[in-house]
Nucleic acid binder design. Structure first.
Lengths: 232, 232
DNA sequence: GAACCTTGACTGTTATCACATATCAGGCTT
DNA sequence: AAGCCTGATATGTGATAACAGTCAAGGTTC
């Protein structure tokens, strides 16, 4: 009945997401963007009213977000946005720094040249015109996932997605506290292009090291920006 | 009004678990024990009837178990027990083998002697009299978690618990396929005692290596037992 | 005889409703 | 005036019911 909207070469099936999933995405977006600050109380009925749905999907969403570590949902009491803690931030990045370089070793020989070209292009467009901050971080997460995709199983992707989302909250708030230096955008773009270049050399160890350093640098940057306002 | 039951030195608060949580635990137990085999279709209403509850808690439970990777829950269609896949098994153990030895390094200097004694004792009682298979694996999971607890943050514990549960399903089925050799019980008990001994030496690297080898051995054991019935 | 369509039962999804519990404010007691 | 109790309000939890989509079987048509 409904006509799928054509796009770039092929007809894509219309994605009819469930209300529950839409609510989950919206609340997650609000949390990652900082609109719902850490510690913010999340009342089922108020959220349901704001989103103009019943509180059943909201309930589902909070349960999912709890499993992602973005929300704490004590039984019987109101849910709230998970607090920020530098110890947690370090633990999240530890998992990333252990897993991602390891996957990179196995991914390097499997990444097609065309895919690397595409990723290089994507990195060049980071923070490009008319993309919201949400879109930019979506791109960023997809970029890191695509670098490891050839070597990542479903379980790896689950862990990676969880970890990237959990760390993203810290990174966004940390970078938000930095001076809005335009050169910072250039630096990030360049850093990701260099990362792709490193993968192009087809040297597993070198790529793994480059990815580890990339993660370490970002962790340190966010950490210094955050420390002061948070408990260590 | 209700009098809390006194126990070993202190009055513990009565834990009143929600129905949703009880249902989650029961379904998870059934999946890990193999009562609900991989691929088994999970109908909300049938499960609700069997558990004598409404399907609302069942729905919540399936959503939680989906986030743990034990259940696949496609929107609009029936949920089912996640299939077994040796590639997935390897990915799960990769995360464990990367994370757990790393945590062990930081945990070794912080584990009290008394705690190590307690864990040694617990290992000695593995598979002891009148404990169900479920209890044994609960003990086993708690044992591994306790070894790393001093160095593990909330995020680490989240990842570890997820990984241990996900791998437990493979291990239990794999070991179930082995001949019920009583010497196998002795071997496992001894292996865990040796692990504690290694931690007692207070050598971070040695402990990390011992834990990695322990995990590698168990992975290989379950893998050989499973291969043949599963796709590689 | 095989492919296609139709129809029916089944199942997940969402909304509305009833209940138990937690939270908080106001007033009382000390 | 501070602490405790008590009442009302709000909130999470669970159940029931109506809606919509899926899937399979049986009939029809080519």
């Amino acid at each position: 009945m409904t006509v799928a909207s054509a796009s770039s070469g092929s007809v894509r099936p219309i994605e009819t997401r469930s209300v529950s999933e839409q609510v989950t995405n919206e609340i997650r977006r609000s949390i990652l963007a900082g609109v719902l600050p850490p510690g913010q109380s999340l009342s089922l009925r108020k959220l349901a009213e704001q989103l103009d749905v019943s509180f059943i999907p909201v309930r589902d969403a909070l349960r999912v977000l709890e499993s992602e570590g973005l929300v704490v949902n004590p039984p019987g009491r109101s849910a709230s946005v998970a607090p920020l803690d530098l110890k947690e931030f370090h633990a999240i990045y530890r998992v990333r720094r252990l897993l991602e370089p390891n996957l990179a070793r196995h991914s390097v020989p499997r990444l097609a040249d065309a895919e690397l070209d595409r990723l290089y292009q994507a990195a060049a467009e980071f923070g490009g015109a008319e993309r919201s901050m949400d879109d930019i971080y979506d791109d960023h997460r997809a970029f890191h996932l695509a670098l490891l995709a050839p070597a990542a199983s479903a379980w790896d992707i689950r862990i990676l997605t969880m970890s990237e989302r959990a760390s993203e909250r810290y990174v966004r708030i940390g970078f938000g506290l930095l001076d809005p230096d335009p050169s910072e955008h250039d630096r990030r773009r360049e850093a990701h292009q260099l990362l792709v270049d490193e993968f192009r050399k087809r040297d597993p160890e070198g790529a793994a090291r480059a990815l580890d350093e990339h993660l370490a640098y970002n962790e340190e940057l966010a950490r210094t920006a955050l420390s002061g306002g948070l408990a260590s």
